[in-house]
């Protein structure tokens, strides 16, 4: 008897994907993925490398548009609106669905300028005082303020790797997004920096819908409430994290979690 531990939430889904296929040229990288993401639960994507986690994550803020030859089929909605409809403004979408990358990629500008970048291009602030406030608030939320408040005008690239990644999170937060996508945000970091990011994810939960790709199953178990297991471009299993790790329904999930492959 398979027990049901499918995902349920009190609030309606923030983002929903239905039957999504992604192709790179002729090659299909994602087939038939349907998933819901809500504000209350951090979602972790796990699966062996090359299974399409990043590809699927990028469909959620249309970053695949920047890859020549990439094509997305199916429906993805944000608050019920199809994000691939022709009227959708990608600039608006990406302001609402922010992204943090695998390798910290602060701009070669000052810490302040890095965080101010988004509010400036989206015209979110009036005047210097307002901008200062947004920068401070974002850095505080990213847990970086105390470390950098005395050197806001030094280069963002001079920070340590973990600080750079938190700067990138602050940069994403600064435009006040609704969803934050993180693609293996800790894979380039040491354990202490990783712990800080994980703690930060806990703090951000509830304020933003968060999706995190990770190859580290302990990390998925620590930070997420829901886990999606991908394999060969398919969503094999999606459920409550504790259930997925203790009592997976699918053999493939179980094999992966017990380290049979990956």
């Amino acid at each position: 008897m398979i027990e049901d531990h499918s995902v349920k939430s009190d609030r309606p889904a923030k983002m929903s994907a239905r039957n999504v296929n992604v192709f790179y040229g002729q090659k299909q990288a994602i087939s038939g993925v349907s998933i819901d993401v809500d504000m209350d639960n951090v979602v972790a994507f796990i699966g062996p490398s090359g299974c399409g986690k990043s590809t699927f994550l990028r469909t959620l803020n249309r970053m695949n548009d920047t890859i020549a030859g990439a094509r997305v089929e199916g429906q993805i909605t944000l608050d019920g609106t199809d994000i691939y409809n022709p009227d959708m403004d990608v600039v608006q979408l990406r302001a609402r669905v922010g992204m943090v990358f695998q390798k910290p990629n602060p701009f070669p500008k000052s810490i302040y300028e890095n965080v101010a970048y988004g509010p400036r291009i989206h015209g979110l602030v009036d005047g210097k005082a307002d901008l200062d406030a947004v920068v401070e608030q974002s850095l505080r939320r990213a847990g970086l303020w105390d470390e950098v408040k005395d050197r806001l005008h030094e280069s963002g690239t001079a920070l340590s790797g973990g600080q750079q990644q938190r700067l990138c999170i602050a940069r994403a937060i600064a435009v006040d997004p609704e969803v934050i996508l993180m693609d293996e945000p800790c894979s380039a970091l040491d354990p202490i920096a990783t712990a800080k990011i994980e703690e930060l994810i806990h703090e951000l939960r509830g304020r933003y819908a968060i999706v995190i790709v990770t190859h580290n199953m302990q990390q998925a178990a620590r930070v997420s409430q829901h886990t999606a297991f991908f394999h060969l471009g398919q969503l094999v299993e999606y459920g409550v994290t504790s259930e997925i790790f203790t009592n997976p329904r699918e053999v493939r999930t179980k094999d992966y979690i017990t380290g049979r492959y990956g």
Partner: peptide, 27 residues
Amino acid sequence: VPAAMRDGSLAMGATQSETIRKVLIPA
């Protein structure tokens, strides 16, 4: 200039020309 720079800017919702002017050319 690493592609990550460009992606970082585009993912913030910057347009292509904003990305060029504010990130790529300065870098």
